[in-house]
């Protein structure tokens, strides 16, 4: 049958993914206790990006999805980053 092509992820893998995510949360909390301005913001957002990627890749099964879907997801984030960059350029140079 063509249906049910979803890959089965083992409990163990999911548990490890959770541990990694918890560790990254802990790192974020520790990093933001240093007030280094833009550097702290960048670091916190980068880690959030990594966490989001891990959630999508493993929990949301993106690792096992078609290339089309993976490109689409990437495009959404590229689009969002473009919107952010263009808006910030607008505010910086007006």
């Amino acid at each position: 049958m063509a249906n049910n092509t979803t890959h089965t992820i083992e409990y163990k893998t999911l548990s490890i993914v959770l541990l990694v995510l918890m560790f990254l949360t802990f790192v974020t909390i520790e990093i933001t206790s240093f007030h280094l301005g833009a550097l702290t913001v960048t670091a916190a957002l980068l880690i959030a990006g990594v966490k989001a990627t891990i959630v999508m890749y493993h929990f949301m099964h993106l690792k096992y999805e078609s290339l089309l879907l993976r490109i689409l997801v990437a495009m959404v984030f590229v689009l969002f980053i473009l919107i952010v960059v263009i808006t910030f350029i607008d505010y910086a140079f007006r």
């Binding site: 249906n3 974020t28 933001t32 916190a44 959630v55 929990f59 949301m60």
Partner: peptide, 30 residues
């Protein structure tokens, strides 16, 4: 044999988690 509803429900739940991953540092930490 037919679990696509749970798959989509789970996807939605992960989205909620995904948003919180960004909300938490932005609102609480920075």
């Amino acid at each position: 044999k037919d679990y696509v509803l749970l798959e989509n429900g789970a996807l939605y739940w992960h989205l909620v988690d995904l948003i919180w991953i960004f909300l938490f540092p932005l609102m609480y930490l920075l």
